[in-house]
């Protein structure tokens, strides 16, 4: 069987355009508005939000990327879990999805079928349906979904809304970008790869469900712009400073060692260049520890901001998962983010 990852230059969310380049383009594109549009791209949020006028909002997102694993079914599962995550990150329920597929004409069609079945598997688990799609012949395979979901208007989460004194919970481990990069050249341990795949194929549905009835002040998910990149967006749009306690950040075993040995995806350096002016690192944080915080994640966890009381209830519902409090929200200081040991 062909190795899917050998066909592509970059993989997963590490294939995202650099945040700096994207920012420079979007800053010249006028915002389009219409009645009912509650969220466009102005706050770099995870999805658009449209007021249905009946107490509900429609949430819409699109996400696709090249493979980060060799098994086509697993790739389909990961791409779908990643696309569905944007709906969960807004507090919504995914309902409808469409496939987006780019596929090389020289590859066996059985591979495409497996990718689609993997995607369908996760969409079904999410309680949604796939009802169409679009396929392009391309030199590199890519797959993902556009997803439509719904939420009650007063229950939507935005990435803005951090309150001073809040704690921020991360629901999955970081380090999958590094592990994916190393596994392309067989340098990652089997156990790290297994851990990364288990994490990437996990829907953020459980984390969203565990938040039911709790007062969530802000939320997003961690993907290609790294843990620090997505925390930066939250801090910036909320006009607060987020203090991250490095030792509390859950990580895939072995990822830090791989970062130390230079198995960082290119996206990690793009992220560092764009984000680091807004970060103060304690001098006790080692370079590889900084690096892993800039590592692009594929299908990463949710970041949820709430007070401590709510956080304890949330964590009690998320036992046996990596969910942990990793940061505190402070009054806006000199930098948007501060990393302490």
């Amino acid at each position: 069987m062909v190795r899917l990852t050998s066909l592509v230059r970059t993989s997963g969310c590490a294939a995202k355009l650099s945040p700096k380049d994207l920012d420079s383009v979007l800053s010249d594109i006028p915002l389009m508005r219409c009645d009912g549009l509650l969220e466009g791209f102005e706050h770099s949020d995870d999805a658009l939000v449209y007021d249905m006028g009946d107490g509900r909002v429609l949430i819409e997102t699109v996400d696709f990327f090249p493979p980060m694993v060799d098994d086509p079914f697993t790739f389909g599962q990961i791409a779908a879990a990643n696309a569905l995550s944007d709906i969960y990150a807004m507090g919504g329920d995914p309902k409808l999805a469409m496939n987006l597929m780019c596929f090389p004409h020289c590859l066996e069609l059985a591979i495409m079928k497996e990718i689609l079945l993997g995607g369908m598997d996760k969409v079904r688990e999410a309680g949604a349906v796939i009802a169409g799609g679009h396929t392009i012949s391309d030199s590199e395979p890519k797959y993902g979904l556009s997803v439509t979901g719904f939420a009650k208007k007063n229950e939507v989460w935005y990435n803005r809304g951090l309150k001073e004194g809040d704690v921020i919970i991360l629901t999955k481990k970081i380090g999958v970008g590094v592990v994916n990069t190393a596994s392309k050249v067989d340098e990652a341990d089997e156990s790290s790869i297994k851990d990364a795949i288990a994490s990437m194929t996990t829907l953020n549905k459980r984390a969203r469900d565990a938040s039911r009835g709790l007062d969530i002040h802000a939320a997003t998910d961690v993907t290609g712009f790294s843990l620090l990149g997505h925390l930066r967006e939250m801090a910036k749009s909320s006009e607060k400073t987020v203090e991250i306690s490095y030792h509390l950040v859950p990580q895939i075993d072995g990822a830090l060692e791989l970062a130390k040995f230079g198995f960082l995806p290119e996206g990690a350096y793009n992220n560092r260049e764009f984000i680091s002016p807004d970060v103060s690192f304690s001098p006790d944080i080692k370079r590889e520890e900084e690096d892993i915080l800039f590592d692009p994640q594929t299908s990463g966890g949710l970041l949820l901001s709430m007070d401590r009381e709510n956080a304890e209830i949330f964590l009690s519902r998320m036992k046996d998962t990596p969910a942990s409090i990793i940061a505190e929200v402070k009054e806006k200081g000199e930098k948007l983010l501060a990393v302490i040991p």
Partner: peptide, 16 residues
């Protein structure tokens, strides 16, 4: 000829 390779190779050699 690219930054990521420069940084990653430097990290590898230093770690060794």
């Amino acid at each position: 000829d690219n930054v990521a390779s420069r940084e990653n190779v430097s990290r590898y050699l230093e770690a060794m």
